[in-house]
Nucleic acid binder design. Sequence first.
DNA 1: TAGTGGTCTAGACCACAAA
DNA 2: TTGTGGTCTAGACCACTAA
Lengths: 241, 241
Amino acid sequence: MAPIDKNSKLPLYYQLSDLIKEKIETGEWPEHHKLPPERELCQMYGVSRATVRQAMQELEVNGYIYKEHGRGTFVKPLKIRQDLLRFYSFTEEMKKLGKVPSSRVIDFCVEKCSEKVAKKMELQPGENVYKFTRLRLADEEPMMLETTYVLYEPFPGITREKLENTPLYNVLTQEFGVSFTMAEERFVPVLTRENEAELLQNLPRSPSMMIERLTYNHNRIVEYTVGIARGDKFEYRVVLK
Amino acid sequence: MAPIDKNSKLPLYYQLSDLIKEKIETGEWPEHHKLPPERELCQMYGVSRATVRQAMQELEVNGYIYKEHGRGTFVKPLKIRQDLLRFYSFTEEMKKLGKVPSSRVIDFCVEKCSEKVAKKMELQPGENVYKFTRLRLADEEPMMLETTYVLYEPFPGITREKLENTPLYNVLTQEFGVSFTMAEERFVPVLTRENEAELLQNLPRSPSMMIERLTYNHNRIVEYTVGIARGDKFEYRVVLK
DNA sequence: TAGTGGTCTAGACCACAAA
DNA sequence: TTGTGGTCTAGACCACTAA
């Protein structure tokens, strides 16, 4: 009953929140299910109330639960949980919309970065970077065109094939164990240029969204992407609390 | 030295975080200034360490401070603090860019809401709403055109004049004491229509951003806005942690 | 080694919700 | 009244940073 390991290097509150997260994600505790009271969780797992509350706080900020004073703690509906801000992942977004995402890598190379890219990524001009252009499709329909620059040094061995089959963020985090601490995105409405329109199967000068993203690992910029998304297919949605 | 009121209805941690917030906002503690250690704050204000840590956490999530394990706690630079997500306010955004914001109210009335608006705002068709259209300018230059719907019942007495001189959110929160708990925004790239282009002093069919916003007070939708922003003047920027 | 934030305990009382 | 989350205390030990 108490699979919490007091000798683990992981903090107790972290182990506990992970345990509860799993119960929620597997559906063992469905939406609006009432969690055991804090004092009961203390007994169940042999920890103090402060520890339980710290775990609960972790779950609350990550959108897994909501509390009602005097009533209890409950599992938050998935629909609301998904509204939380997170890093934009084309793959994930398309899956959420029930579409099948795919990528066609149009261009892939390692090159010494240009002045302009160096400035964006806060690098020395001439440092090695991957540069690749991908056409992103949903149900085989072109949705956006992205050119991405990724630091070469900490990520040796990225290949064209990997990018076709695995979301970029999974490649970077799972294969290389690099976490992302921050990302900054800019959205500007523009018109498609001729060559972009061709790839997007769009008319030139159609309304579209220019998306620029910088992804950080602590204070280092790991990835820089500039993309064009079809305005008739794309919208950006934010929920602020 | 200890202006914390233990008999106040306000929680101690809240009073403490407010105190520190003030020191930061007035500049008494400048950027990167080292805060007193947690144990010292305990003594200074006569509270326990858990209370101090709760106050610090409040400050951390709101972007006022950052911590470095083993080194201490420091005031976060304003530049980074401002990057935090918050409700979009045209007035505030323009001030931040060093421009003088103004509004020209083009249309103002109270009407029974249409089917379409009722659906968006989750009202019964026919309920009373304010409807007003504003041209927003920065340094006297047109930037965006917004049509806003606001519930009538909880906000009697909004006038055209008030909207010209006061940000909408200040009118609603300060005069009527209604807080906003959530907002949802959608951004879609579009082309300006003829009448919009005229007001925005733009060419028709210029790239621009359609912005749609729903503002909530708990589960009730208080405000619905649809706007068009000039693409050559507007960008939307998000920082995700 | 000393100073600092990170984690954790055991227990207390308060405020809100529901029966 | 009982059960629940919200606030708070006093104190302990750990882990990281810097001298």
